[in-house]
């Protein structure tokens, strides 16, 4: 039986967009008869035994799906650390299919496709994984993974992302690859330059009031002196 392993690379752990997106895809694969497993990288990096457990899971999987956020237009530390560990071990990795599914808070998936996907691609080639396609999700915060919600729970907002994930599941279950794709979680009308300016203004107001609630000054410059 084909075995799909989901590695969740969000430093936020279970309550993250990476979890909600990955779980949605894995549930479909499960229903299609694939054997599935999920590991949260935050937990697996806790000690050597857990790291070794994660590397063994990679060894035994046929499909490796890595879901992760973008930090400074790049992989977060825990993902780079995992990639280093997989590359250092490098055994039984040939012919496994590798699929990175990356989300960023900003609306534009271009933050992801600018360089991060190339880094994942290089990693896959280096360790001998077969590149089976990638997905860049712009506006990942709109999917509310931080609050622990599933894609089904947030309704219409997840519609576009779910559609692409369903297509990816079909391809994987049929032993196929899929093209590198990108999707914007935000509704299209919010992507227009004028609406982006409106959102930026609203975003500033929101951050200020959230900091104020905690008694902080959002504009503080603690390292000025």
């Amino acid at each position: 039986m084909t075995h799909a392993l989901l590695l969740v690379g969000s430093p936020r752990g279970k309550k993250s967009t990476s979890t909600s997106v990955g779980s949605y895809l894995l549930n479909i694969l499960d229903k299609k008869g694939l054997e599935t497993d999920t590991l949260w990288i935050t937990r697996q990096l806790a000690d050597d035994e857990k790291l070794s457990q994660m590397l063994n899971a990679v060894d035994h999987a046929d499909i490796i799906i890595l879901t992760a956020p973008l930090y400074d237009d790049c992989q977060p530390y825990i993902v780079i650390r995992t990639m280093e560990a997989i590359a250092a071990q490098r055994k039984n990795l040939g012919y496994k299919r590798f699929i990175p599914i990356i989300n960023c808070a900003f609306q534009e998936p271009e933050h992801i496709t600018a360089v991060a996907i190339s880094i994942y691609h290089k990693f896959a080639t280096t360790v001998g994984f077969k590149w089976a396609g990638s997905l860049a999700i712009g506006g990942g915060e709109m999917l509310q993974g931080k609050s622990g919600k599933t894609l089904d729970e947030i309704g219409k907002m997840a519609r576009k992302v779910k559609k692409v994930l369903e297509r990816i599941a079909d391809a994987l279950a049929a032993d196929n690859s899929f093209p590198d794709e990108s999707v914007r979680a935000v509704p299209d009308f919010l992507y227009k330059p004028f609406m982006k300016k409106v959102l930026a203004w609203m975003n500033k107001y929101d951050w200020k009031s959230r900091a104020k609630k905690n008694g902080g000054v959002v504009d503080a410059r603690p390292y000025s002196q």
Partner: peptide, 15 residues
């Protein structure tokens, strides 16, 4: 490592 909690923006801004 950064946990993406945004505390440096809303709890202790800048720190």
């Amino acid at each position: 490592y950064c946990t993406g909690c945004w505390g440096c923006w809303v709890k202790t801004p800048g720190k």
